[in-house]
Write a protein that binds this DNA or RNA. Structure first.
Lengths: 199, 199, 199, 199
DNA sequence: GACTAAGCGAGACGGTACGTCGCGTCTTAAA
DNA sequence: TTTAAGACGCGACGTACCGTCTCGCTTAGTC
């Protein structure tokens, strides 16, 4: 126990070098250009050392993605549901685009059960919790229906992003984010009785 | 030109053998287990012959997917927008699940521009047209707002499917399809003033 | 059938390049410096191609040794048993020293059954036949006893060579060859006429 | 020097553990299965500690061999040259077969000068002295010629053993030992009385 | 019905990267 | 001071497929 805790120096140096090199390669050559051998060469870290940490290339790429996700800033109570949802989508978009990792590991995440589980636990669950908080506040404010399904709402927010990113290739921008957010808000808007009052 | 026209016999036999073997491998071992060498061995077709038709493995996988998509049955006018949208989602789900090809080539489609273009032209555009027709009829019926954005509606319908398929790993079933369809219909429901009159 | 026979061109070119590079490496850096990767680089032949022919480094080294052995010139009937045995020992010595391969694969030959079998069939048996002919002629001439054990004679001739080569490190020269040959001739000398008297 | 003298306790414990584990691995998996890492694991001794004592794997293997050789029992004056030579060959055979180390380090001894020197000083010279004594007594008894070359006699006795062990794979047994001993005795037999007549 | 070029099978080949093994060095904490 | 523990850089291993390249055989459609 003491050893792992008290002697992180070498580990930390290698860890950092590996992730930095991985990021560089991802940004410069995309996921196709991400190679363990390439990371080893660029980072000055031995291939063996990389394999001691990550089972394979996909796990390494996921690690970068997770690190990014951990920087996800919880959108605070802005007093405005639409603003909060927009902030959420923008933050997600930013992380998704950074490094362009997701496109590359999508197939792996979908195919490799262990990787999929890691993705779910380390990334999806984090975002789901965010949406949960936003939705809870929105319900309290009367902006969304009390029976709003958080998971489906989350899918409606993120699914289109991913679809554009991976399949349709269309751009992820403010306009699209607004369109999606508006659709979700309309979809889960409270019953019309309340609407009457508003208009 | 003359070649393809005048000597279709042998070509056709090889074509068929290649696609059949590809399908088998995809179903049995997933996309990771799809290799040109494997297809050659299983189909009894020479590697050279495969490469004469498909630039690489991903193009081959896409070919299978396109073939499936071409069987997409246009949902006819059912007189009921919700039923038509459900039929669309179900049909899409079926194709998506068949062969489990999409998960495997997602990363390629996202990464390889030529493949991406092919995917868009041969698959997305086909479905987009379907949604367009359904939405047009729905607008006519007064079920959806006249300014409904077909592309975004399409993303809201398909995006969650893909998200489940690739990332969250949750099941694609009737209940989920209904949730998504209902959300889209609510999102693009005509302005409430009109609603009062109708009901 | 026709194919294998009529299309040896590429094979032959690779074969030759591989063996040439192997020989160079053996002569320059000894067996320790013999690496499949090194051979690949030096020969311009892909590693894969080498592995298609030789299971591993030792098999490759043995191939060189076998090629050398196949050039073994059968010492003709010189009319003189001592001269013939000396010619045999000299020839063997020359091949043994050429390339210094034997020292390096000795352990493998001793340890790996398949390699050992190959060594016996392709190398030992060849030499054993030589000794057999020489001994046969010697017996006819009355230079060696009719019951001379060819195999033991062979061991007495070659064993000391190998012992010097591998263990004692002493030089293999004409003097030593003569000492060994003389010992063998004395050991299997026919009973002198005097023997009659003794018994 | 002081170290070895003043703190022998821990050293000795490690020494013993290392050699024991080495022996086990050699016997169970042959020389190919002898690795420093394996010895460390099996012995509970740190790799570092092994490297403090032995430069590399071969030196370690040699250490085991030397230990065995040091148990070589000098064949006493049996009053019979043939019996003494047979005893010598049998003793050598026994040590050679024990642990099957020699086959594995043969290539190293032949290739690595330092190892070769150690082998000569610690093993060959010991046996050479044995043969020297036996030959000396034999000459005195009139069983061997006074000009018998001890070194060559030694090579004729041991060379065939090694040749069988490493190359021909034939068995080392009493019959073979007798054949070799008889050959050596015949080779260096004193000129018979009859010889006078011949010359 | 024989001819002839397109299409094909077979598979050798150079190449990239894989993931693994064991080496020998180095650093650190505990004994 | 010596040790156990183990991280590390390193070199090579043997493997899997890649995509390219001959090379003859097969055969469909023409003459």
């Amino acid at each position: 126990m003491t050893q792992l805790v008290t002697r992180p120096a070498r580990r930390a140096r290698s860890d950092q070098a590996i992730l930095a090199a991985t990021r560089e390669l991802l940004e410069q050559h995309g996921v196709r250009g991400l190679t363990i051998e390439g990371v080893a060469e660029r980072s000055g870290v031995a291939k063996t050392t990389i394999y001691r940490r990550y089972r394979d290339r996909d796990e390494l790429a996921l690690a970068v993605l997770i690190e990014d996700t951990e920087s996800f800033r919880t959108p605070p109570d802005l007093g405005d549901t639409r603003k909060e949802l927009l902030a959420f989508v923008k933050e997600a978009t930013e992380i998704i685009l950074r490094g362009s990792v997701i496109q590359g590991i999508a197939s792996e995440v979908a195919t490799n059960p262990e990787l999929g589980q890691a993705y779910r636990e380390r990334i999806i669950d984090v975002r789901l919790a965010e949406v949960g908080e936003i939705v809870a506040r929105a319900i309290e404010r009367g902006d969304l229906r009390p029976d709003t399904d958080v998971r489906v709402a989350h899918e409606l927010l993120i699914g289109p992003l991913m679809y554009r990113l991976i399949f349709s290739g269309r751009p992820l921008n403010r306009r699209h984010a607004a369109q999606v957010v508006d659709a979700v808000m309309a979809a889960y808007a409270p019953a019309p009785a309340a609407t009457k009052k508003r208009r």
